[in-house]
Amino acid sequence: MRREDGSRDSPAMTDPEQHSYSRADLDRLGEKVAKGRTAAGLDPAPARTRADTAMGDGLRIAIEFVVSVLVGAGLGYFIGGLLGGAVIGLLIGLLFGFAAGLRGVYRGMMAGSAESAEEGTRDEPGV
């Protein structure tokens, strides 16, 4: 296969008569690539990703905030239970969870969205 392609390519490069053939070949290849991209569902997505980034960001940060509070409260309740004061632990854990949630919101706002993280994370990891 590969040898056949190679032998087809080399006259195209040396012989100017073959130029149009090679051009059509390239166009067909471009069409195939475009079709493949569409088939893989990769073409429309990146464009739309940026369009609904604000909504996605908001939801992501909201979920992280709520989860942080709940995990903090649960962890506090668990550790408090081990130490014999589940309610005190719950309250302290709730505060820490709230703080962790706020930190997550702050970090999320500073770092930009995870959805557009392809650009964002390159300068984000230090944050």
């Binding site: 992501r60 979920i63 989860v67 942080s68 903090g72 962790a100």
Partner: peptide
Amino acid sequence: PLITPIEIISFLSRPVSLSVR
């Protein structure tokens, strides 16, 4: 003493928020 528990909580909430999303 304040920051470390906060960091631990945000680390532990990662799998939860990842799966909930």
